[in-house]
Nucleic acid binder design. Structure first.
Lengths: 223, 223
DNA sequence: CGTGGTTTTGATAATAGTCAACACGAGTGG
DNA sequence: CCACTCGTGTTGACTATTATCAAAACCACG
């Protein structure tokens, strides 16, 4: 029981990306389903994703959930506010993380390069969140799903002649809670995109963008 | 023509809140309707609101607009991403601002106290935006409006016996674009709250919360 | 007093949600 | 190896919420 504690099962690599080792922990692996932190926890570490996929969420008392962000390789999660985590975070697939001491962000003495890197990451985070506001507040279901697929294609897609293919490791529920729609709407929208020949669904967790131009148009409201 | 440039019409005060004057500009006044910056502008200054009200927005090509945030006294607006503004910002009423050099945030050498203050403000901003995700993605129109009024009451409300009164200086359109609904929905919801005796609308820009407890319940999904 | 912009209300339509059934696939145990 | 089961995904029928379009009311200002 109480199973969702972080399950560290080995170290993965040992080359810190930044000079000041003192502020960087040993790389950590978390199994799919394992949690990194919960809302209200004191922040000791931030985490830079090296491989895998994290899910950052926030819950309402009545169970409604919003996926705040997905943590793809390169992303940093766990920025504190008043020293506390204000979201939950868990791994959707086995993931490898580089922990970074909170103090490297907040005081940063002795590791100016790392401090700078974290600060810039936080500022990029603000900007990315502003984009997502537009998504949640002003886009239709089709535009939301199309935008989401577009971003993923750009971020983790592999070009195969004219089309772009990528893994969609999270569940439909996660996509829905990220986009502020229901699972059913995500399904229907994907079906609609498939039937109109914009994408093909290779299998549940693999999408191929057949017509990137059409997808882009849909994501911006072009019919 | 080209009228929306910042209209500075005087200095207002001269007591910098932080030690290192070098990084702090003279207090600046902006008239209602004046713009502080536009999306894509190079960031030279951040602004801490001393009085008045700012509106931070982002636009889609087709004209759809999302109000990212309102800048109330105490708030800091204008965090850069890659050195650029990624939103527009203008003043809704005559406002007084304290400009702070971007370098105070990003390099901060010589003014560690100010740097720290700005960093913490950025981190609080991230947390506040996460809350707003829930608002945009998962709350109904009534919950959105009730939450919004609740926050304003807490932030700028004045207690008058059992009720809380405050100014709502922005237009209905701004509230709508902030909450991700239409103006009509904002109006109808306010009317509904008024008719059910939760609020009274003293005049278009003045709201009185008659039953704070009921408003709170509505903002969390309680019927 | 008009005039223009904003707010409010009403009637109707469209989008997305809900509830329910069914399909699919992975893993389990007979 | 084959049901069986459970969780997830998909589809369908229907409903509810919110958007849209249009008209009226209100207000601020010249």
């Amino acid at each position: 029981m109480y199973v969702t504690l972080p399950t560290e099962f080995s170290n993965c690599e040992t080359t810190p990306t930044f000079a000041e080792m003192r502020h960087i922990g040993q790389d950590t692996r978390v199994r799919a389903g394992g949690s990194l932190f919960f809302e209200g926890d004191e922040v000791e570490w931030l985490y830079q994703v090296k491989s895998g996929l994290l899910r950052v969420t926030r819950m309402l008392e009545d169970g409604r959930r919003q996926v705040i962000a997905f943590g793809f390789p390169g992303d940093i999660v766990g920025f504190p506010s008043n020293g506390l985590h204000n979201t939950d975070c868990d791994a959707l697939v086995d993931s490898c993380l580089q922990p970074i001491r909170r103090s490297a962000l907040e005081s940063g003495e002795g590791a100016p390069e790392l401090h700078q890197h974290l600060l810039q990451a936080a500022l990029r985070e603000i900007s990315a969140m502003q984009d997502h506001f537009m998504m949640l507040g002003r886009k239709s279901a089709v535009e939301k799903v199309a935008s989401f697929l577009g971003v993923l294609a750009q971020r983790v897609g592999k070009k195969i002649d004219g089309s772009i293919q990528f893994e969609l490791p999270m569940q439909r529920t996660d996509v829905a809670d990220f986009l502020g729609v229901t699972t059913e709407t995500v399904c229907r929208t994907l079906t609609q995109l498939r039937k109109s020949g914009v994408i093909s669904i290779e299998n549940i967790h693999t999408i191929k963008i057949l017509r990137p131009d059409a997808l882009l148009a849909l994501s911006e409201g072009g019919d």
